[in-house]
């Protein structure tokens, strides 16, 4: 009995060792070969990524996937959306199940380093908040000492929560559940006093998931953390990192330059502004182009397709995030007092 046990132990160790995976080669080639972009998204968070009854994905994160596919494959519809829970998302990216993760994920030092990932941009500046039933009669997070708090596992939320209560010398009881639906189920059933996540997540939950259209719940004023959300890729493929990064910056720059989904194709033909010509890859009077596309390893019309896919940043924002009741705030362009800023695309 013991001897066979020992043999099994050795075999089990060998299995652990076999978590080797395919060599992470140039992602662009792999994406082109598959002729589809595998994009990791949320399982369902209105405004960011959610599938409707016909299976069509909408939301800011989903539109970012489309822009990247448009740049890499020439077609915004060649996206395979892969819904992932908070817990699954980074492993899926690490082992090559997806090419890019666009799923309200916070950029943190350790994720950027130890997890072997690269965050490319910030597509939404967020912060963590608290939601409570109105009948609890709580006006501030500072009154939450002793509360029971529902939270989803595998999130920065779980850590900020513990930090905040420690910093304010308060106690709390966490109820930590893996699937979003179960977390919300427990909270709305009354198992917890408080539900906590990013403010965008709270806004979306209030509008889309709360009973009674959210009339019985409220979000507390405190914002307890910085949550810069944006796409991430695997480390070690610089070209792919650049493609994702500049696909997103093109959308921000387009807003600043007044380029929209509707006028981008016209402007690409008619604009005489060298900056716009440079971004859209339009040949100048001498028939020369900026060479941005060549630098990224794609063709020169890449930015036209990115903007054509889902519109510029403000169009994407207004279509998806505004309906949640979230104003632009710090997500406005830098020139309008916000933090959205694209480096020069030259």
């Amino acid at each position: 009995m013991f001897r066979s046990g020992a043999i099994w132990a050795v075999a089990a160790l060998a299995v652990v060792g076999s978590v080797s995976a395919a060599y992470a080669g140039p992602t662009l080639d792999a994406v082109k070969k598959a002729d589809v972009l595998k994009c990791g998204v949320n399982t369902g968070l209105g405004g960011f990524s959610i599938a409707d009854s016909t299976g069509k994905w909408t939301g800011l994160d989903a539109d970012v996937c489309r822009a990247i596919a448009a740049v890499a494959l020439g077609d915004a519809n060649k996206v395979k959306f892969v819904p992932l829970s908070a817990q699954q998302r980074f492993t899926a990216l690490q082992n090559g199940e997806i090419d890019v993760l666009s799923r309200n994920s916070t950029w943190t030092l350790q994720r950027d380093t130890k997890l072997g990932l690269n965050f490319t941009n910030v597509t939404f500046y967020d912060g963590q908040g608290f939601m409570v039933p109105k009948k609890l009669n709580v006006k501030s997070a500072k009154e939450l000492n002793g509360a029971t708090i529902c939270v989803q596992t595998g999130t920065t939320t779980e850590l900020n929560l513990a930090d905040y209560f420690r910093a304010n010398s308060m106690q709390f009881k966490p109820v930590v559940i893996e699937q979003q639906q179960e977390v919300l189920g427990a909270f709305f059933a009354g198992r917890c006093d408080v539900y906590t996540t990013d403010r965008s997540g709270l806004a979306s939950t209030l509008k889309n998931d709360a009973p009674n259209g959210g009339a019985d719940y409220m979000v507390l004023p405190e914002i307890i953390s910085k949550e810069p959300l944006g796409p991430a890729v695997r480390q070690g493929d610089e070209q792919w990192t650049d493609i994702v990064k500049y696909s997103v910056y093109a959308l921000i720059q387009a807003e600043e330059s007044g380029i929209t989904q509707a006028n981008v194709e016209d402007l690409a033909k008619t604009s005489k502004d060298p900056a716009v010509q440079g971004l859209l890859g339009t040949p100048n009077a001498e028939g020369k182009t900026s060479g941005n596309g060549e630098a990224l390893g794609v063709d020169e019309a890449w930015a036209v397709r990115a903007i054509k896919a889902a519109g510029n940043y403000s169009e994407i924002y207004d279509r998806n995030i505004k309906p949640l009741g979230l104003e632009r705030g710090i997500n406005a362009l830098w020139s309008q007092g916000g933090l959205m800023y694209s480096p020069p695309l030259r």
Binding site: L13, A14, G17, S18, V19, A21, Q94, K114, L115
Partner: peptide, 23 residues
Amino acid sequence: LILMLGTYLAHNTIVNLANRKIA
């Protein structure tokens, strides 16, 4: 034989993780 396979796989995993800069 199992140990041989095991060490091979362990080595492979560590090299792969290091290639992908995973701690």
